[in-house]
């Protein structure tokens, strides 16, 4: 299996987890979306040399993962798959910023290493929060929440249709790719000419499919407006969930908790 097939398989896994039924799953999608956004803004609003104050924020993903039954292994694998860009850019920091800012015992530490550590933590926090959002809410729920919070209908419908046909078209792409690699012996990616032909074929199939879907829609009375039923409602528990986390994020953002705990032990 190619990397991409693994990738797609894992969307399926996330989807299955999203169909679970725990306290976190039952929350209104809006409360989870807002909490996630607050969390991310809180994390990235720290200065670039901040490391220790980021740590309390790990409470959110850890508790959410534990409460929703999201396997830690899956989160870890996903983090590794998407790591490259952020880490590639971040790893240059230690080379560019060599000014010594502090020391751990006898070992001097440069600003670059501190900011790199900070980037790694930010990365782990923001990525796992996004994955947990979709893993406990599902794309349908996220779309519903976004639409309630002002996302245009056309765009929400676009998202749902995209997601629905992702698997169908990805499957066609994978099959085509397999057929090509079965007949090429170099194992290299195709050059632009062949690539364009493959893309063109895929596109024509996609267009034909879109026409058939439109036919199916109009057979059932589609007139351009998408009507759907609201899946969930806002309860007291949603307000409580949002308030508790917002309060925690605010405290963790304003007070360096590890620093305080540490200073109680180290004089």
């Amino acid at each position: 299996m190619s990397n991409l097939e693994v990738h797609f398989h894992e969307i399926g896994v996330l989807d299955r987890i999203a169909a679970g039924d725990t306290f976190v799953h039952r929350l209104d999608p809006r409360s989870k979306l807002l909490a996630t956004l607050l969390f991310i803004v809180g994390v990235v609003s720290f200065g670039k040399y901040e490391v220790s104050a980021l740590l309390p924020f790990f409470l959110y993903p850890v508790v959410m993962a534990a409460a929703s039954g999201m396997p830690a292994g899956l989160l870890g694998r996903k983090l590794l798959i998407v790591a490259p860009f952020a880490l590639l850019v971040g790893i240059l920091n230690p080379f560019l910023d060599r000014e010594i800012l502090t020391a751990i015992g006898p070992v001097p530490v440069s600003g670059g290493w501190i900011s790199f550590t900070s980037i790694v933590f930010r990365f782990m926090l923001t990525v796992s929060a996004a994955l947990l959002l979709v893993g406990t809410t599902g794309i349908h729920g996220v779309c519903f929440a976004c639409e309630k919070l002002g996302m245009p209908r056309v765009f929400a419908v676009q998202l749902l249709l995209l997601y629905r046909y992702l698997f169908v078209l990805a499957d066609e792409g994978i099959r085509m790719f397999r057929a090509r690699s079965a007949r090429s012996f170099s194992g290299r990616a195709p050059g632009p000419g062949l690539y364009a032909q493959m893309i063109g074929t895929l596109l024509l199939r996609a267009i034909a499919r879109a026409q058939r879907i439109y036919l199916a829609m109009s057979c059932r009375g589609f007139d351009g407006a998408f009507r759907s039923r609201t899946p969930v409602g806002w309860h007291v528990r949603d307000t409580a969930f949002l308030l508790v986390w917002a309060a925690f994020f605010t405290v963790a953002r304003c007070v360096n908790i590890p620093e305080i705990i540490g200073s109680m032990f180290v004089q």
Binding site: H140, L161, R164, V168, A216, M217, S228
Partner: peptide, 11 residues
């Protein structure tokens, strides 16, 4: 329809 994927387009 021949291909049910074309007919089942909702979440």
């Amino acid at each position: 329809f021949q291909d049910p994927d074309d007919q089942l387009f909702m979440p």
